[in-house]
């Protein structure tokens, strides 16, 4: 088991290194002068020269990449003209916008994103598996057909439509909830939950449709297995069959997918974050892309990559735990 984790961790590091090479190549080597971007629009040639020196942009590309890796693993020192600023590992450089350390920038934004991802995923699983099971138990009836259409509608509705509708109904018209503004969990858990409620629901409505369909098809597959037939032949009720004999096998792939989706949610919920004004990583990414703040973009892509890779490992472990026939190797 520990050998398994060691192998997977090593694999994860290699994957992330490969991602970093690609990202680095795309953003730093592609057309456009990073020095000009970092220096800003009103920049004289002397300042530009200083910036090039500070960022070692005159070095060969492989050396630049090496410095980048050094920064990630052991940290990096930057001269600020008057003194030296140390950037601890993992250091992804300084933002072109305000010279803040990228790591710090992201760390500030992570709590909001994690709050959104965790809550939305919990709700997604509850809604998705629930409706999936309901449509299996009531298959062939009106309920199933209605659920099939609803989940299709859920998949087809972008979050900026459903989110807007939720805001209008619950905040503007019914006035049941305040317009969401982010409150940290550590400051006030109750307010945190109330303010996160609508973003969770909006994201979960979209995601859960996918899970409902997956649960349904996976459940139907399990119900066609021989051991389910045995319990039918012994007069066990359909509900007991679904709950006791089919659920575990059926949700195993669903849970594995949830882990991976959670990983991509950590970086990929900019629409929901923008919609509800959550100061998360997604918003930061949008902003950084707009302002061509390369170090931040690179770092966020690395964070997303790391989250997906780690989530993948967790997903595999969960799958093996649910399905004993799968051995971790």
């Amino acid at each position: 088991m520990s050998l398994y984790f060691l192998r997977r961790a090593l694999g994860a590091v290699l994957v992330l290194l490969a991602i970093s090479v690609v990202i680095y190549a795309t953003f730093y080597v592609a057309p456009g002068d990073p020095a000009k971007l970092a220096c800003g629009p009103r920049c004289n040639p002397e300042q530009l020269r200083q910036v090039r020196e500070q960022l070692s942009l005159d070095d060969p590309v492989y050396l630049q990449y090496w410095h980048f890796l050094q920064g990630v693993f052991v940290g990096h020192d930057y001269s600020t003209g008057t003194g030296v600023m140390h950037c601890d590992a993992p250091c992804f450089g300084l933002s072109y916008q305000n010279d803040q350390q990228v790591t710090e920038l992201i760390a500030q934004r992570l709590p909001a994103t994690l709050s959104l991802a965790a809550g939305a995923m919990a709700l997604t699983l509850l809604l998705g598996i629930g409706t999936g099971l309901l449509s299996v138990v009531r298959r062939g009836g009106v309920v199933e057909r209605a659920l099939t259409w609803l989940t299709l509608a859920g998949i087809a509705t972008p979050v900026f439509i459903s989110g807007l509708a939720l805001l209008m109904v619950f905040c503007a018209y019914l006035e049941w909830l305040p317009f969401p503004s982010y409150v940290a969990l550590t400051d006030d858990p109750e307010q945190w939950a109330w303010n996160m409620l609508l973003p969770w629901v909006a994201l979960a409505l979209l995601e859960s449709s996918k899970y409902a369909r997956m649960t349904r098809s996976s459940m139907l597959e399990t119900l066609a297995e021989d051991h389910v037939r045995t319990f039918r032949a012994y007069g066990v009720s359909e509900r007991a069959i679904v709950g006791r004999h089919a659920l575990r096998g059926a949700v195993a792939p669903v849970i594995a997918m949830a882990a991976v989706d959670f990983g991509s949610m950590v970086g990929g919920t900019m629409l929901t974050e923008t919609m509800f004004g959550l100061p998360g990583v997604g918003q930061l990414l949008v902003h950084s892309v707009q302002t061509v703040d390369l170090p931040v973009v690179v770092a966020i892509v690395m964070v997303i990559g790391a989250a997906v890779v780690i989530a993948n490992i967790i997903g595999d472990v969960l799958y093996a735990a649910a399905d004993r026939r799968v051995a971790l190797r």
């Binding site: 021989d226 051991h227 045995t230 319990f231 032949a233 004999h245 575990r248 096998g249 004993r324 026939r325």
Partner: peptide
């Protein structure tokens, strides 16, 4: 049933 392996719940 014919196949005694697949005819029993593997988890229980």
């Amino acid at each position: 049933f014919q196949d005694p392996l697949s005819s029993l719940d593997p988890y229980q």
